[in-house]
Design a protein around this nucleic acid. Structure first.
Lengths: 192, 192
DNA sequence: GTCTATAAGATGATAGAC
DNA sequence: GTCTATCATCTTATAGAC
């Protein structure tokens, strides 16, 4: 028998991070124990504290995401195209991959914690939606931008947590085409 | 000093149910302890087991909702009007009221539990969205219906858990007008 | 670099006194 | 109809042996 364990700090860390992302995504922060994560990663639970300090710190690192700055900032993309990009980046990720669910949805499932909610609002409203508000007409541009955010988040929710049949099976082209129409309508809508 | 407590079974039960709905909505199933609920309701924690049997049973009763059957079944309402009704019923409830958040969002925050997810999918897809699919054109009517579901759920999410500024402050008329435009666009969209 | 043992506290749930 | 006391189990986290 070879070594009983991979004596490799980096590999252990990565394995823990991926297992954490999977567990937190599926069961939320409170529903996940450090023992569960460690078992999935096939390492000892105490290593979590050795490498990350605490369960909370592991969570923070597992859901950390760098929002792609200025998604269409150089080009003058219209809102529908922007929405399409976000749809691909956030919603239509390959969820068969190791820790592939987008961090936004991991946070959504752990939104019981106030700090997680604050982080979520910051990221969604201030980072992702800022570009939309600039490109939408009317005095209610902010509201329209948030409606687009709600649409994208809702689609992701239907696919990942609710598991609705049609959306879960649909291709990004199919869904993206319909979403583009909805966003275009929002752009054309008269002030309410 | 008068009686130390309201000796009233019905009142205690109701108080527990309302406190449970509030707690479960805000902190999710796992983030809520029976002691928390009892403290909010100002009764003893053991009464939860006396009246409901278990924490899980209390949760089930707290989130039970009767889907209004056949929302526009008698009238031949179009999807945009139907969406408006759901928006009012599900999203724009008065959240200052006692246990007012719609049960769907309580479930969403406790979606770590598989049974809750199943219940959620059943209610959203089979009950709420069935009426839409019938009224939408094209071979992808089911997909379009789920997009509407995602939009409504996403809007509720932005308001309740994310707390996005514009949507949270908006009136149902304002938001409803924009939602109607988006749903109409979905109705008019060519098959993808 | 990894594991054993354990601390210190919270959890859901029960039995029985009042 | 309500409360006290308690159980068994689970939690995060730490100290220290190997």
């Amino acid at each position: 028998m070879s070594e009983p364990k991979r004596r490799d700090k980096a590999a252990t860390r990565t394995a823990l991070l991926e297992a954490a992302r999977r567990r937190f995504t599926e069961h939320g922060y409170d529903g996940t124990g450090v023992r569960d994560i460690a078992a999935d990663a096939q390492v000892d639970a105490t290593l979590i504290f050795r490498y990350f300090g605490s369960k909370q710190a592991l969570f923070d690192e597992a859901v950390r995401v760098d929002v792609p700055q200025g998604l269409g900032r150089d080009g003058r993309r219209d809102p529908a195209a922007l929405a399409g990009e976000l749809l691909r980046e956030i919603v239509f990720t390959d969820r068969t991959a190791p820790g592939a669910e987008h961090p936004l949805f991991v946070m959504l499932r752990s939104a019981g914690r106030p700090e997680v909610r604050a982080h979520l609002r910051e990221q969604v409203c201030d980072e992702y939606l800022a570009d939309f508000a600039e490109r939408l007409p009317g005095p209610d541009a902010g509201l329209r931008a948030e409606l687009i955010g709600g649409l994208l988040l809702g689609i992701g929710l239907m696919r990942s947590v609710i598991g609705s049949p049609a959306l879960s099976d649909s291709s990004i082209e199919e869904t993206g085409g319909l979403v583009a129409e909805m966003v275009a309508a929002l752009q054309a809508a008269p002030p309410q």
